[in-house]
Nucleic acid binder design. Structure first.
Length: 626
RNA sequence: GCCAGCGUAGCUCAGUGGCAGAGCAGCUGAUUCGUAAUCAGCAGGUCAAGGGUUCAAGUCCCUUCGCUGGCUCCA
C-alpha cells in the first residue's frame, strides 16, 4: 500500500525532549519510526533522533491499526462475555483475529453484538496507554485477573521488563505499538468465527477465534469486501458445476474427482501441452504402476515417515502400498541398467496419478483432493550438474507461469522433524537450492522445517488475476533416496559414484492447477484451453443445414465446436453460450447463407462478418509456442 | 482428525410441529424469430441416512455420513 501522506510523511526530523504526537498533524499518522524502530506516538524523545511518521495507509501502519482493532475487539468480548479468556490476537496479512478460551463458542449473532460494542468503544475514543513493568508484577497482575494464557505467555518471555497496553477497561500484555486512541479506527468488520488450537498445536485445547479486518478508510474496506465477493464468484466449485467441468459424489467418496466431458477435454489439453513441453526439453515419458510392494516403501522411508498418508492393500499375502508419490518407479527405471556419467542427467517425466489419505477436514474442491495427477519428473544427475538442472527447472517454471499469466514468489523449505538423511546431505541440498535461486537473482523466504522428508524444497507460490497466492510448482533436492536404493553411475575414472536426484512438478497437480486456472480466468479460458471454442448457431430452422456445414468444416480442422440449431430465439442461444463462457459464436442466418460467411461474435460482444477459414486461423494461432 | 455452521427436485432456494413448494433446467406441444431468457402444458422428492420424542416431524432430540468456514496438515 502506498504511503499517501502528503505534508510530513517522508520528512526526517531531529528533535529533543518532545512527544512524537506533537510533530505530526496529519490524522492518518498513527505511529512513528525512531531510528528505524516503530514506536507509539505518545513516546517522548530524549536526544536527537531520526524520526519518520508511519501512516495507517502504509503496510506497517495498517498492521498497527489492525492489531489495535484486535485489542478493541477483545475489550468488547470481555465486556459482553466475562467468561471468555483472551489468549493472543495478532494482525494478519488481510486483517486480524483474536483467540478466546470459552466453553460456549461464539455464534454469528454474537459477532453483531461484539461489533456494536466495538463501535461504542471507538466512539468514546479511549487512549491506548503503554506501561512498562517488571515481569513478576505482570505475572501477578494476570494471575489476579484469572488470565492463565497471559501468564503462560509471560513465562516464555525472557526479558525482565514487559509492556502492557490499556485502553478503556481492557489491559493486554503486548509489545505494541498501537494507535494513539480507539477513535483512530475508521473502518472495520468482523468476518467469521472458527476453532483454532492454542499455539497452533493440535494436541492443545481448541480455542474460539474471531476473524475481522480493518482498513484506513471505509472505501478501502468496501474494496476488500468486494474482493471477497469477487473471489466467491470465481469459486472453482461453483464454476466447475456451472461450466460442467467436474463433479464429486457422496457415493464415490470424499476428495475424489469425476471429470465431466468438458473438464475431461480441458484436462486432456493440459496433458497434451505438458507432454510436448517436456519432450522438447530432454525429458523421457515413463509410466509406473499405481501399487508397489510394501518392501519398497520400507526402503524409501515412506513406511516410517509417510505411512498415515498412505493406503495399503493386501493381495496373496503380499502387502502393497498405493503410491502417494511417483519417485519409486523412476528410481527403479534408473537402476534397471548400469549408468554412465555420459548418460546424465536423466530426466523421467510422468503424469502420475497418486493417492494420499488427506484428513477429512482439509479437502476442498479440486484444490485439495485424495487422488490426483502430478506433472511429476525425477532428474538424476551428477553433483556438479545439480545447480544447472535446478536453474533450468526454474526457467521452465518461469516460462509456463508467464504463459498462463501468473506472477510468482519463491521460498525454501528446510529439514522437517520427521526426515531421513544426514545433516551434511541436507545442508548440501539446501545450499544447492539457494545457490540456484541466487544465480537467477530471485528473492526467497525461508520456511523452516517445511521440507519433504527426503529433502529440502523450493516452493513456488503463484499469484492469480486477483492477487491470491497458490502453491503449485515445487523443486526438491534429494541425496537420500539415491543412497537408500544404492543408485550409481560409472564416472570417467571407471569408479561407481552416487547420483543426486531432483523431484519436481511444474503445474503441481492437474486437479489443483485446473482449480486455480478456473478461478484465475473466472471460467473464461483462453481460446487454446477452452473445452468448447466455438458455438455455431442458426437463426431459424431454415439455416440449420448451413450451420451444420460450418460446424463440420470446423470439426475437420480440429476446432472444438458445438452446433446449436435448437428451435430457440438467437438471444436465448447467445445467452447460453455467454453463460458457458465460450470464446467464439458463429451466428448464421439468411444473410450469411447467401454470402457464404459467418457473423463472428467474441466474448467481449464484438461482432464482425468473416469466413470460416478466418475463424480457423484465428483459433489455430491462439495455441502458444512452447 | 478438531471447532462451528449447514444438508429440501439436476441447479438456486422458500417452507416459524399440522396436505412437499417456487424459479431455472428437463420433457411434450405451439411459435420460425437477428444477438443475455417466446408461450402453454407435463413430469420431477426415501426433505442426506438411521434411530428417538409427539396424536402428528422437513421442522424438536441423538448417532452416522457429507458439505462449508477455520485450525492442524499439504501438490
Amino acid at each position: 500500500m502506498e504511503n499517501k501522506n502528503s505534508v510530513n510523511s517522508r520528512k526526517l526530523v531531529s528533535v529533543k525532549g518532545k512527544a512524537l504526537k506533537d510533530l505530526f498533524t496529519d490524522p492518518d499518522v498513527i505511529a512513528a519510526k525512531v531510528d528505524g524502530r516503530i514506536v507509539d506516538l505518545s513516546t517522548s524523545l530524549n536526544g536527537g533522533k531520526e524520526v519518520e511518521p508511519v501512516s495507517m495507509h502504509s503496510k506497517e501502519g495498517l498492521e498497527i491499526l489492525r492489531h489495535s482493532t484486535a485489542h478493541v475487539m477483545a475489550e468488547a468480548v470481555k465486556a459482553l462475555f466475562p467468561d471468555a479468556r483472551p489468549t493472543i490476537g495478532p494482525a494478519t496479512d488481510e486483517g486480524f483475529y483474536y483467540d478466546f478460551d470459552r466453553d460456549t463458542p461464539f455464534s454469528s449473532e454474537d459477532l453483531a453484538s461484539i461489533e456494536k460494542k466495538m463501535q461504542d468503544i471507538i466512539a468514546s475514543d479511549k487512549p491506548f496507554i503503554r506501561k512498562e513493568i517488571p515481569k513478576e508484577d505482570a505475572v501477578r497482575y494476570f494471575t489476579d485477573q484469572h488470565e492463565p494464557y497471559k501468564v503462560e505467555i509471560l513465562n516464555d518471555i525472557e526479558d525482565d521488563t514487559v509492556s502492557l497496553y490499556t485502553q478503556g477497561d481492557f489491559t493486554d500484555l503486548c509489545r505494541g505499538p498501537h494507535i494513539p486512541s480507539t477513535g483512530y479506527i475508521k473502518a472495520f468488520k468482523l468476518l467469521s468465527v472458527a476453532g483454532a488450537y492454542w499455539r497452533g498445536d493440535e494436541h492443545n485445547k481448541m480455542l474460539q477465534r474471531i476473524y475481522g479486518t480493518a482498513f484506513a478508510s471505509k472505501e478501502e474496506l468496501d474494496k476488500y469486501l468486494e474482493f471477497l465477493e469477487e473471489s466467491k464468484k470465481r469459486d472453482h466449485r461453483k464454476l466447475g458445476r456451472e461450466l460442467e467441468l467436474f463433479m464429486m459424489s457422496d457415493e464415490v467418496g470424499p476428495g475424489l474427482i469425476i471429470y465431466l466431458p468438458k473438464g475431461g477435454m480441458l484436462r486432456s489439453i493440459l496433458e497434451d501441452f505438458e507432454k510436448r513441453l517436456h519432450l522438447k526439453r530432454g525429458y523421457d515419458i515413463v509410466y509406473g504402476p499405481g501399487i508397489l510392494k510394501g518392501e519398497l516403501w520400507k526402503i524409501s522411508g515412506h513406511m516410517d515417515n509417510y505411512r498415515e498418508n498412505m493406503y495399503f492393500t493386501e493381495v496373496d499375502n503380499q502387502l502393497y502400498g498405493i503410491k502417494p508419490m511417483n519417485c519409486l518407479s523412476h528410481i527403479l527405471i534408473y537402476r534397471s541398467k548400469i549408468r554412465s556419467y555420459r548418460d546424465l542427467p536423466l530426466r523421467y517425466f510422468e503424469l502420475g496419478t497418486v493417492t494420499r489419505h488427506e484428513k477429512s477436514g482439509v479437502l476442498h474442491g479440486l484444490l485439495r483432493v485424495r487422488q490426483f495427477t502430478q506433472d511429476d519428473a525425477h532428474i538424476f544427475c551428477m553433483p556438479d550438474q545439480l545447480i544447472d538442472e535446478i536453474i533450468s527447472i526454474i526457467n521452465l517454471v518461469d516460462e509456463v507461469m508467464a504463459l498462463f499469466g501468473f506472477d510468482y514468489e519463491t521460498e525454501i523449505s528446510t529439514r522437517p522433524e520427521k526426515s531421513i538423511g544426514t545433516d551434511e546431505e541436507w545442508e548440501l541440498a539446501t545450499n544447492a537450492l539457494k545457490q540456484a535461486l541466487e544465480v537467477k537473482g530471485l528473492e526467497y523466504d525461508i520456511n523452516e522445517g517445511d521440507g519433504a522428508f527426503y529433502g529440502p524444497k523450493i516452493d513456488i507460490k503463484l499469484k492469480d488475476a486477483i492477487g491470491r497466492k497458490w502453491q503449485c510448482a515445487t523443486i526438491q533436492c534429494d541425496f537420500s533416496l539415491p543412497q537408500r536404493f544404492d543408485l550409481s553411475y560409472i564416472g570417467p575414472d571407471g569408479q561407481k559414484h552416487r547420483p543426486v536426484m531432483l523431484h519436481r512438478v511444474i503445474l503441481g497437480t492437474i486437479e489443483r492447477f485446473m482449480g486455480v486456472l478456473i478461478e484465475h480466468y473466472a471460467g473464461a479460458f483462453p481460446t487454446w484451453l477452452a473445452p468448447v471454442q466455438v458455438v455455431v448457431m442458426s437463426i431459424t430452422e431454415a439455416h440449420s443445414g448451413y450451420a451444420g456445414d460450418i460446424a463440420q468444416r470446423l470439426e475437420e480442422d480440429d476446432i472444438r465446436v458445438e452446433l446449436d440449431t435448437r428451435n430457440e430465439k438467437i438471444g436465448y442461444k447467445v445467452r447460453e453460450a455467454r453463460a458457458m463462457k465460450v470464446p467464439y459464436m458463429a451466428i448464421v442466418g439468411q444473410r450469411e447463407m447467401d454470402e457464404n460467411t459467418i457473423t463472428l461474435r467474441d466474448r467481449s460482444g464484438k461482432q464482425e462478418k468473416t469466413t470460416v477459414d478466418d475463424l480457423i486461423s484465428r483459433i489455430k494461432s491462439s495455441v502458444p509456442e512452447i
